[in-house]
């Protein structure tokens, strides 16, 4: 899947947003360019479509409120991904606080939930994958998802998560091993 975002698009979005009378046009272009990608980043973290819808809407409204404070010190997409991932991780933390179940229960619950989800048509192997991702700590889950699903380079991810490239590589490696072990355990059971 080739990215439809380019530095030219970002420059155009910022140009419109900074020009009086063109902010709405700029924000509309930002939505057209990024809303779908941000939705999928959030969706793969929170899993449920309705949850993802709420989180991504809140994220985009925060972007709207704060876009004037974006100073261009980082890439626009880096800034947007940072807000989206912060919003999703905050949501997950709040959800965890509300749930008294153990991590294993969460993973099993997710398998059952995905199998019954009308907005999930994946195979059993994909259900196992999402259930395995669920056992990862939030930060590691974030690293795995950005790398595996978004195919983000470690350099770009470093800008989003403020973590060194070396640490991100190690985190992804550990995440992959945990997922592999979890799926093997699942198949052996």
């Amino acid at each position: 899947m080739e990215s439809k975002t380019t530095p030219i698009t970002d420059a155009r979005i910022l140009q419109l947003l900074q020009k009086d009378g063109n902010q709405d046009k700029g924000f509309r272009l930002l939505l057209e360019t990024y809303q779908e990608r941000l939705y999928w980043v959030v969706r793969r973290l929170v899993i449920d479509h309705e949850d993802a819808n709420d989180v991504v809407q809140n994220c985009l409204i925060k972007v709207y409120r704060n876009i004037h404070s974006f100073e261009g010190k980082s890439q626009l997409y880096t800034w947007l991904y940072r807000i989206a991932t912060n919003e999703a991780v905050t949501f997950l933390k709040q959800k965890k606080r509300r749930m008294a179940n153990s991590v294993d229960d969460e993973s099993n619950n997710l398998s059952n939930k995905l199998e019954a989800d009308v907005f999930f048509d994946g195979e059993e192997a994909q259900v196992k994958l999402y259930a395995a991702i669920e056992i990862l700590p939030d930060k590691q889950k974030l690293v795995f998802n950005l790398r595996y699903f978004e195919e983000m380079s470690y350099e770009d991810m470093s800008g989003v998560l403020h973590t060194s490239v070396g640490a991100l590589k190690a985190s992804f490696h550990h995440a992959v091993k945990k997922i592999e072990n979890h799926i093997r355990g699942y198949e052996a059971a």
Binding site: E32, Q35, E36, H49, N53, I61, F119, I179, E180
Partner: peptide, 30 residues
């Protein structure tokens, strides 16, 4: 590192969204 994950990545399907969702999302956010 993980051939299983490499193979799984090639498979289609998975999460979906309701038809016309992204148009609705844009309207709702605007």
């Amino acid at each position: 590192e993980a051939p299983f994950l490499a193979r799984l990545k090639e498979k289609p399907g998975g999460m979906t969204v309701p038809e016309g969702y992204f148009d609705q999302l844009q309207q709702e956010v605007l």
